[in-house]
Design a protein around this nucleic acid. Structure first.
Lengths: 225, 225
DNA sequence: CGTGCACTTATTGTATACAATTTGCCCGCG
DNA sequence: CGCGGGCAAATTGTATACAATAAGTGCACG
C-alpha cells in the first residue's frame, strides 16, 4: 500500500525482526519516524498496530519498549493459535465453496513446488504457507476470528529467519495441507479440526526446537554485533 | 483516564450503544470529534479501537460505517468467548494465588448481594460480573489472551440495556461463579474449564432470547424515534 | 554520603493546517 | 435520454507546532 502508515508499519516491523533491537530496549516515536521516513502521526498508528501484535509494548508511562517473550509465552501463543485455527478449519469445512477449495489446492501446489526444489525455497514456502492459512481463515467466514488470528499468526516470524527447516518438516506440512483439503472436500468439520490441530501442534514443536537453537547461539550473535 | 483519546472512545462508544445510529449509517471523523468534543487526532485513535472491537467498520475507501451484526455473528462471538474463556479458566486453575481466589470470592459476594435485592440491581450485577471475568482472565497470566478477550467481552453490552434479566438467570450465574471458585480451590483445571464452558453457553442462550425480544420490538422503537 | 526537591530535558498527547484521495454532481456529447 | 468526463465538495491522510506529562539531573540539606 502507498500510505505512510503502512510503509511505517513495514519498515519498523522489519527493523524489529532483523534483530537490530533487543528485548528491553526503549524506542521513541521520533527515532521510529526517522527509521520509517515519515512523520510521527503515521508512526503512532504503526506502533499501535505493532502493539496489538505484541511486537512492541508500552511502559507504565507510555514509552515504547521491545518486549521479551518467555518460553511460556511462545507456548501460549501456539496454544491459542491451535485452538482458534482448529475452530476456523471446523467452521470452514461446512462453508467453503468449490472455488475456495480449488484456490487452496492451487496455493498448496505452489507450496509443494517450493519444497521439491533442492535446496527448498524456504521463503517461498513460508509465503505460500501464510497464504494457505489465511485462505482457510477466510473460508471460515468469521470477521472476528479473522481479526484475532491475523494478529496471532504474524508474530512467530521473528524466528523464521533463524533456522534452516528440515526438508521432512516442510514435506509433512504440505501433506497436512493436502489432508485438510481432503477434509474440506468431504465437508467433514471434525476431520478438518483434527488435522489442523495436529498440524499446528507439530509446528509448535518444530518451532520450540528452532527457538532452542537460536537461544543457545544468541550470545555469540550479540557479541558479534 | 484523563486523556482525550479515552474520553473520545467513551463518548463515541456510548453514542453507538445508545442506539442513536443504525447499521449502515456513515459517520465522519469530524462528526465524531464534535460528539466527543476533541480534535480529530484522538478521535482517529478512538475509532481505531472501536474498529478493533468491531463496533465500527471502514468501507473499501476508508469511510466509517456502523456495521450490522447478524445472528450468525452473535453466535460466533459467544462461541469464541466460550472457547477462550474456558481456556483462561483452565490456565488460571493452576496459577491462581490464594489472594486471587479471595478477591474472586469478594467480587462474587458483591454479585450475590446485587441479586438478593428486590428488585435485583442489574447494573451492579453486570459490573461485578465483568470484574469477576476480568479477574479470572487476569489470573490466567496470558497477556495475549487478556488482550483478545478484552475486545470480545465488551461487545455484547449493546444488548444489556434492552432486557430485564430473570432472577433465576442471575442466581444461576452467581452459583456458577461459586463453583468456579471451588474448582480453583481444588486446583482442578478440567473442572474449571467445564464449569466456565457451561456458564458461558447458558449465557449465550439467555442472550439469544434477549436478542429475539429486542429484534421483534425494534420496528416500534424506530418508529417512535 | 545519602535523600528529597526544584528544575531542565526528553517524550508523548493534542490541535490545526494542509495534501491527497474519493465521492457526487453537472454538463456536454453521443 | 443515457453515459462518461471532469470539476467541486467532502473526507480522510500527513506534517508540524505546541501543550502536557514524565524522566533525568544536580543541588541543597540533613
Amino acid at each position: 500500500m502507498s500510505t505512510a502508515s503502512d510503509t511505517a508499519y513495514e519498515k519498523i516491523r522489519q527493523h524489529l525482526l532483523e534483530g537490530r533491537v533487543r528485548p528491553g530496549d526503549r524506542l521513541t516515536e521520533e527515532q521510529l519516524s526517522a527509521i520509517a521516513g515519515v512523520s510521527r502521526t503515521p508512526v503512532r498508528e504503526a506502533v499501535s498496530r505493532l502493539e496489538r501484535e505484541l511486537l512492541l509494548m508500552r511502559t507504565q508511562s507510555n514509552r515504547i519498549v521491545v518486549p521479551d517473550w518467555g518460553e511460556d509465552e511462545i507456548d501460549e501463543l501456539f496454544t491459542l493459535r491451535q485452538m482458534l485455527e482448529s475452530h476456523a478449519a471446523e467452521r470452514a469445512a461446512t462453508r467453503v465453496s468449490a472455488q475456495d477449495i480449488d484456490e487452496l489446492a492451487r496455493i498448496n501446489s505452489e507450496l509443494h513446488e517450493a519444497v521439491a526444489l533442492d535446496p527448498p525455497d524456504v521463503a517461498r514456502f513460508l509465503d505460500a504457507n501464510r497464504l494457505f492459512h489465511e485462505a482457510v481463515t477466510e473460508a471460515a467466514h468469521s470477521p472476528r476470528l479473522g481479526r484475532i488470528l491475523a494478529t496471532l499468526v504474524e508474530q512467530p516470524v521473528v524466528l523464521h529467519t533463524a533456522r534452516e527447516y528440515s526438508i521432512e518438516d516442510l514435506r509433512q506440512s504440505s501433506r497436512d495441507h493436502d489432508e485438510l483439503i481432503a477434509a474440506f472436500r468431504a465437508r467433514d468439520p471434525h476431520w478438518a479440526r483434527a488435522i489442523m490441530g495436529s498440524h499446528l501442534r507439530r509446528a509448535f514443536h518444530v518451532f520450540a526446537d528452532a527457538m532452542g537453537e537460536q537461544r543457545s547461539s544468541a550470545e555469540g550473535a550479540c557479541a558479534a554485533e
